[in-house]
Amino acid sequence: MPDDIILETRGLTKEFKGFVAVSDVDLVVRRGQIHALIGPNGAGKTTFFNLLTKFLAPTRGRILYAGADITDLKPAAVARRGLVRSFQMSAVFPHLTVIENVRVGLQRRVGTSFHFWRPAASLAVLDTRAHELLEAVGLAPYARMVAVELPYGRKRALEIATTLAADPALLLLDEPTQGMGHEDVDRVAELIRIAARERTVLMVEHNMNVVARIADTITVLQRGQVIAAGSYAEVARNPQVVEAYMGSSTAALGGAPA
C-alpha cells in the first residue's frame, strides 16, 4: 500500500440474507483528497460506510487503512485510529447543549474520560477549540442551546462540528448537506473544503453542485457495484452514469461543470 493511499478496500462485499448491498467493491482513497461517493438511493453507500467504520461486518473482502488491515477491528478502535464518520440520519446528543456535543468529540484526547472524581469544569480547557468549531459551522450563537431544539439543518452542522472535533485523519460524511437550505449548503461545502486541507474526506453527497465544486475524485455506486470512478468530468461523460442518474444516456449529469 503506497504512502499516498489512506484507504483501500479489496473485494468488499456485504450480503443481507441473499441480497447483495455492497458487491465486490475495490476503492482507493488518496491522502488529502476530497473523494465523493455518489449513486442512486439504495446503491449501498451508507452500508459501505457502515463496513468501513465496522458498524457492520463484511461478508467478504478486506479494508486497509493507513497501511494496516483494519477489517477485524472494533468500531471504537477504528475511530481512535482517525477514521471518524457522521451519520446520514442526524445523530447528535439531543439533551446535551450544543457546546457539550462538540466537547464530547474533543474530550477523548484530554485523557480524563474515566476520571469520575474530577469536576466537569476541568473540561473548560476545551471550550476555546469547541467555540472555534462552532464558529466554523455557524453555530456559535447557539452554543448554550440544547441540541434537540435546533432546526434540522443546524443539527447537521452540529454533527459535522462534532465529527471534526474528533480530529479524524479520514473524515467520512454521509450526505452532510441533506435537508439544508441553499446558504447552509454553501457554508458546509466551504467548511468541508477547509477541513480537507489537513485531512482526507470521503463523502456521500447527492448535491451535484457540491460534488462538482469540491470533489477531487468521484466513485459512482449502483446496486452495490462501482460503475465509474475518476474526476467529475470523466464520470459525467460516462454513459452508464448518465443512464443511472437520468434514466437515459442522452441527458447530461446535472451540476456545474468542473
Binding site: F55, A91, L96, A166
Partner: peptide, 17 residues
C-alpha cells in the same frame, strides 16, 4: 459527561471512539 453521551446516543459515542 461520557456516560451522558452514551445514554443519549450509543452509536454516536462509539463512532467518536
Amino acid at each position: 459527561q461520557v456516560l451522558k453521551a452514551i445514554r443519549e446516543n450509543e452509536a454516536r459515542a462509539v463512532s467518536l471512539g
